[in-house]
Amino acid sequence: MIKNFLMNLLLAGIWIALTGSLFYTNFLFGFMMGFLILWIMNRNETDQRYFYRVPKIIGFAFYFLYEILKANVQVAFDVITPKYFFKPGIVKYPMAAKTDFEITLLTTMISLTPGTLIVDISDDKKTIYIHVMYLSDPDAFVRQTQTGLERRLLAILR
Rank of each mutant, 00 (worst) to 15 (best):
residue 46 T to R: 13
residue 24 Y to I: 10
residue 62 F to T: 10
residue 145 T to Y: 02
residue 20 G to R: 04
residue 122 S to V: 02
residue 117 L to G: 02
residue 19 T to C: 01
residue 125 K to D: 05
residue 158 R to T: 10
residue 76 A to G: 10
residue 144 Q to T: 12
residue 143 R to H: 06
residue 25 T to E: 13
residue 111 S to Q: 15
residue 6 L to I: 00
residue 47 D to P: 09
residue 117 L to K: 08
residue 54 V to P: 02
residue 11 L to S: 01
residue 59 G to C: 02
residue 113 T to P: 09
residue 139 D to G: 04
residue 148 G to W: 01
residue 24 Y to E: 02
residue 11 L to N: 06
residue 122 S to A: 06
residue 87 K to W: 00
residue 100 D to Q: 15
residue 2 I to R: 12
residue 8 N to M: 01
residue 155 A to D: 15
residue 76 A to I: 14
residue 128 I to R: 09
residue 6 L to C: 08
residue 88 P to D: 11
residue 128 I to S: 12
residue 39 W to E: 00
residue 102 E to T: 06
residue 29 F to W: 00
residue 2 I to Y: 05
residue 131 H to K: 04
residue 9 L to N: 00
residue 156 I to R: 02
residue 34 G to R: 09
residue 98 K to V: 15
residue 74 Q to N: 08
residue 123 D to H: 12
residue 157 L to Q: 05
residue 84 Y to S: 15
residue 132 V to M: 07
residue 94 P to A: 06
residue 114 P to M: 04
residue 4 N to Q: 11
residue 87 K to F: 00
residue 149 L to D: 05
residue 81 T to S: 13
residue 115 G to I: 03
residue 152 R to Q: 14
residue 5 F to S: 04
residue 74 Q to Y: 03
residue 42 N to I: 08
residue 84 Y to M: 12
residue 132 V to S: 09
residue 84 Y to A: 13
residue 66 Y to C: 03
residue 33 M to E: 01
residue 145 T to E: 02
residue 44 N to R: 15
residue 84 Y to F: 14
residue 112 L to Y: 07
residue 50 Y to A: 00
residue 20 G to D: 11
residue 50 Y to F: 12
residue 58 I to K: 08
residue 95 M to S: 10
residue 55 P to N: 07
residue 10 L to K: 03
residue 14 I to D: 04
residue 76 A to V: 11
residue 83 K to M: 07
residue 101 F to S: 11
residue 66 Y to R: 11
residue 76 A to M: 08
residue 5 F to L: 14
residue 19 T to G: 07
residue 82 P to A: 06
residue 92 K to N: 12
residue 96 A to W: 09
residue 51 F to H: 04
residue 25 T to I: 12
residue 94 P to M: 06
residue 16 I to A: 12
residue 5 F to V: 04
residue 134 Y to G: 05
residue 112 L to N: 11
residue 67 E to N: 11
residue 124 D to V: 12
residue 138 P to N: 07
residue 111 S to Y: 13
residue 91 V to K: 07
residue 7 M to A: 13
residue 88 P to C: 10
residue 99 T to A: 05
residue 18 L to W: 14
residue 92 K to V: 12
residue 132 V to T: 11
residue 130 I to H: 02
residue 113 T to A: 06
residue 26 N to F: 06
residue 104 T to H: 07
residue 157 L to E: 05
residue 154 L to E: 07
residue 57 I to A: 15
residue 138 P to S: 09
residue 134 Y to K: 05
residue 121 I to Y: 04
residue 86 F to N: 13
residue 87 K to I: 08
residue 156 I to V: 05
residue 108 T to N: 10
residue 129 Y to M: 13
residue 143 R to E: 10
residue 54 V to Q: 06
residue 16 I to Y: 06
residue 134 Y to W: 10
residue 132 V to A: 15
residue 27 F to S: 10
residue 144 Q to R: 14
residue 55 P to H: 09
residue 142 V to H: 01
residue 121 I to N: 03
residue 97 A to E: 06
residue 53 R to A: 13
residue 15 W to M: 09
residue 30 G to D: 03
residue 25 T to K: 03
residue 75 V to N: 01
residue 45 E to K: 12
residue 86 F to G: 00
residue 146 Q to G: 02
residue 107 T to I: 07
residue 157 L to M: 15
residue 77 F to A: 13
residue 127 T to M: 14
